[in-house]
C-alpha cells in the first residue's frame, strides 16, 4: 500500500527581478517586476510502505521543493499529494506526528546543550508518553551508540557524532516515513558508513519508509532499492538502483598523488581524465576493468603518496542518462524528458 502518493505536483515561485544600476533599483520600487520560476513541473510518483527511495537530482532540480511540499512546508501551485493518507499542506500538524525529517544542513539539536535535552524537548513536542519515550530513547541510544554523547554539548561534537544524534532525534517518535535531505553531507568515509548503517537498520527493522535525497552515489547504492531522478522539476528516471548502477554508475574515479612523475598507464577500461607531473585522475569503467586490479597495477608501478576512489558526481550520472537517451540534434525538452523515465513511467 503506498504511503506517499503524488499526482502532477507543481510549484511555481514568483521571483522579483530588478534591472541593474540605480535606475533599476528606483524603477523596482514603483514598478516591481516578477518572473515565474517553475521549480516542480508535474511530479507523479508513489512510494510503498517500508520502501527506501532515493530522490535525486542536480542542484536546483526541484527535489528539496518536492520534499518541502510533501512535509507540508510549501503549498503547491497545482497537483495533489497524500502522505500516510494526509494532505501535507492542509493537515500539516496531524501529519507532523507521523513523519520525521533530517535536513543535513539544518540542525534540530540545541547547539549549546547536550542531545538529551533536545530529546526531552522533542518528547514533549511529539506528546510522547514518558515511559514509552524513555524506552524508545534507550533503544536508540544503544542502536546509535550515542550513550557517551548524551551529556556532551552539541557544539563539542564532531559532525559525524552530531548526525548520529540528529537521526536518533528524528526517530524518537517512531515516524512511519522519514525524509532525509543530504544526511551524509560533509562527513568522512567512516562516519558516512555509520550513518548509512543506521538508516538501513531503521528501514529494515522498523519498516520506516525512507525518502532520501543525496548527491552521494554511495548513499543511494547502499540504502535504496529504487531511485527517482528529477531534473528541471520533472521526473526523468524512475527505476531500480541496480539498473541505474548497471547502466550509469559503473565508473569509478581514482585520484592519485605520486612520488614519481606520471608516465602513463595503458590498461583497457582506464581513461586518464587529468594528469600533471605528480598528480593524475583516472576513470575506470567497471564493466571492463575491476577497480581493485587497476589499483594493484598502479601500486606495483608507482610510489603513491595519496589515493582516493570516488563515484562519479551525480551531475555526471544525470548527464549520462540524457546522453544515452536524448537524440543528439535536440535538447531535452520537458515532453522528451518525460519519456526518459525507466521502469515506472510517471
Amino acid at each position: 500500500m503506498p504511503v506517499i502518493e503524488v499526482r502532477d505536483l507543481q510549484k511555481t515561485f514568483r521571483v522579483k527581478e530588478k534591472a541593474p544600476g540605480l535606475s533599476g533599483s528606483v524603477r523596482a520600487l514603483f514598478h516591481p517586476e516578477y518572473r515565474s520560476v517553475e521549480a516542480v513541473k508535474g511530479v507523479t510518483l508513489e512510494v510503498e510502505e517500508g520502501e527506501a527511495l532515493a530522490f535525486i537530482g542536480p542542484n536546483g532540480a526541484g527535489k528539496s521543493t518536492t520534499i518541502k511540499m510533501l512535509t507540508g512546508i510549501l503549498h503547491p501551485t497545482a497537483g495533489d499529494a497524500t502522505v500516510l493518507g494526509y494532505n501535507p499542506w492542509r493537515q500539516r500538524e496531524q501529519l507532523a506526528f507521523h513523519i520525521g525529517s533530517v535536513f543535513g544542513q539544518k540542525s534540530q539539536l540545541w547547539y549549546h546543550l547536550p542531545p538529551t535535552d533536545t530529546f526531552n524537548l522533542l518528547a514533549k513536542i511529539y506528546e510522547l508518553d514518558p515511559d514509552s519515550y524513555r524506552r524508545r530513547r534507550d533503544e536508540l541510544v544503544e542502536a546509535f551508540e550515542i550513550g557517551d554523547l548524551l551529556q556532551i554539548p552539541v557544539r563539542k561534537m564532531s559532525l559525524g557524532q552530531r548526525m548520529r544524534c540528529e537521526i536518533a532525534a528524528s526517530l524518537l517518535h517512531r515516524p512511519k516515513v522519514i525524509f532525509l535531505d543530504e544526511p551524509t553531507i560533509g562527513l568522512d568515509v567512516i562516519a558516512k558508513q555509520k550513518i548509512r548503517d543506521l538508516i538501513r537498520r531503521a528501514n529494515r527493522e522498523e519498516r520506516t519508509t525512507v525518502f532520501l535525497t543525496s548527491h552521494d552515489a554511495g548513499d543511494i547504492e547502499q540504502l535504496c532499492k529504487r531511485v527517482v531522478i528529477i531534473n528541471y522539476g520533472q521526473v526523468i528516471y524512475d527505476d531500480a538502483v541496480h539498473h541505474l548502477k548497471r547502466q550509469h554508475l559503473r565508473t569509478k574515479v581514482i585520484s592519485l598523488k605520486l612520488a614519481d612523475a606520471w608516465e602513463g598507464l595503458d590498461l583497457p577500461g582506464v581513461r586518464v581524465l587529468k594528469a600533471r607531473d605528480y598528480g593524475v585522475k583516472l576513470e575506470v569503467d567497471g564493466a571492463v576493468a575491476a577497480t581493485q586490479d587497476v589499483v594493484a597495477t598502479l601500486l606495483a608501478r608507482y610510489s603513491i603518496v595519496d589515493i582516493t576512489i570516488e563515484d562519479p558526481p551525480m551531475e555526471d550520472i544525470i548527464s549520462s542518462i540524457f546522453a544515452a537517451q536524448v537524440p543528439e540534434e535536440g535538447p531535452a525538452e520537458p515532453a522528451l524528458a518525460a519519456t526518459l523515465s525507466g521502469g515506472r513511467q510517471p
Binding site: 546543550l113 524537548l121 514533549k124 513536542i125 506528546e127
Partner: peptide
C-alpha cells in the same frame, strides 16, 4: 502547554551557558 513549558526550560538552560 507542556511542550511550550519545555521550550521555555530548554531555552533557559541554553541561555545559562552565557
Amino acid at each position: 502547554m507542556a511542550k511550550y513549558a519545555e521550550v521555555l526550560k530548554v531555552t533557559l538552560q541554553n541561555r545559562l551557558a552565557y
